[in-house]
Design a protein around this nucleic acid. Structure first.
Lengths: 219, 219
DNA sequence: CTTGCTATTCACCGGCTGGTGACAAGTTGG
DNA sequence: CCAACTTGTCACCAGCCGGTGAATAGCAAG
């Protein structure tokens, strides 16, 4: 093509404009990580693979191998990112509320966690993944998540002493398990064990039940 | 190969003995269904497909199309089978116990369900499937399961009236959600939210916590 | 035996997957 | 200008997937 031609022609974007990807490793790495998180959040872990991520990031899959050492490394990077999840999603102050009792604390924690999980599709997919597969990938992701969560609860607890005579670890595990399954089930099917979970009013019912359970145990 | 050779040779079973599958449609259908259930229970829904089931049943996948109309039909057949699950796994009498209060009832129900789910890998896989994917297949399976369960609870409840002023549907949904997630998480990773779930003693702790929660709500 | 019917298997297709080796396009330094 | 390195692309592989059309094997009635 002559240069004259180039000048005369209006620079109409050809539809398949390659967009001239700039040579920038850091940006590409970020694009890959973002694509991976988006894909996992939106499509779930079922169709989560090298090809899909590369397609989503608009680059060649080879780069995923180069920069992350394959899917495993990429998943691990997601897990690292996840460390900051709790801090981003959940305030670590008491919201100006005085938490006088352990029951106050747990009620607030439970409701915060419920809302945070409802608002975060990526986290939900990871939780579903955790109970579906037992690969090294998922195990690491799971660890990162539970560690972050445990740390947050610990900080939140402050100097409050748990009640005597109650196995708080076991009881809290049940409570968090309930929240997780409730939110997962609701997201997929709009209900859980016969309880509709679509409208705001439905969720108020769930929150009330949750509070009742927490208060029933911790007073 | 000469016939003399055949006579001289001891009838050692060749490793790839075709086993001369007998011509029996009913038996084949059953073999397919069994293989499907076994595969789903043991491997999970991830690698659950036509080819895998056919391999497991030791027949050609074509037969799955012919007899069940494809994977969907097969899954539906599993769902139908599942209808009898509750009856098989959970006694519908009160075990010689007098259930005087709604709390008595729910405590017993919760513990029975916990044990039943722990003992049934197929059911666990299905529950995990339910919170991971939202296809027509899974939806039907999910419906069959919840319907059977609801019916069982209804029968079990008998003439006992639920307490006033408590949203039992919501509270029970939370309780069953807790049980399901607890068991799923335990099966995959041996723990749930920091609570170890491996030894019998661990499970006793969980049962105690569950009882405490139920009693906390229903007295 | 021959003619059907049914159960079962076989061979093949296109498409997608994870994975790899070679190559092109820029960038930097001598 | 050339050489060396980094970034990115492409082409290709074997393997599995779901799905389909045709052939084969056993049985039963005529």
């Amino acid at each position: 093509m002559s240069s004259a031609n180039a000048v005369l022609r209006k620079p109409i974007e050809t539809p398949a404009e390659p967009e001239k990807r700039v040579r920038n490793r850091a940006a590409t790495e970020q694009a890959i990580l973002d694509a991976a998180k988006r894909l996992l959040a939106e499509e779930g872990f079922q169709n989560f693979g090298i090809n899909a991520v590369a397609r989503g990031a608009g680059c060649d899959k080879q780069l995923i191998y180069r920069y992350y050492g394959g899917l495993d490394g990429l998943v691990e990077a997601i897990g690292t990112d996840l460390g900051g999840w709790v801090q981003d999603r959940i305030p670590d102050d008491t919201g100006g509320m005085f938490l006088l009792t352990y029951g106050d604390l747990m009620e607030r924690l439970a409701l915060l966690f419920l809302d945070a999980l409802r608002a975060d599709p990526l986290m939900r997919r990871i939780v579903a993944w955790e109970v579906s597969e037992n690969t090294e990938q998922v195990r690491r992701l799971s660890e990162a998540r539970s560690k972050a969560l445990a740390g947050w609860i610990e900080r939140m607890r402050g100097s409050l002493t748990p009640p005597k005579g109650i196995d708080t670890v076991a009881v809290n595990a049940m409570i968090f398990a309930a929240i997780q399954h409730l939110v997962l089930s609701a997201t997929i099917s709009g209900q859980c064990a016969g309880l509709a979970l679509k409208t705001a009013k439905d969720w108020e019912k769930a929150a009330t039940a949750l509070k009742r359970i927490v208060r029933g145990v911790y007073g």
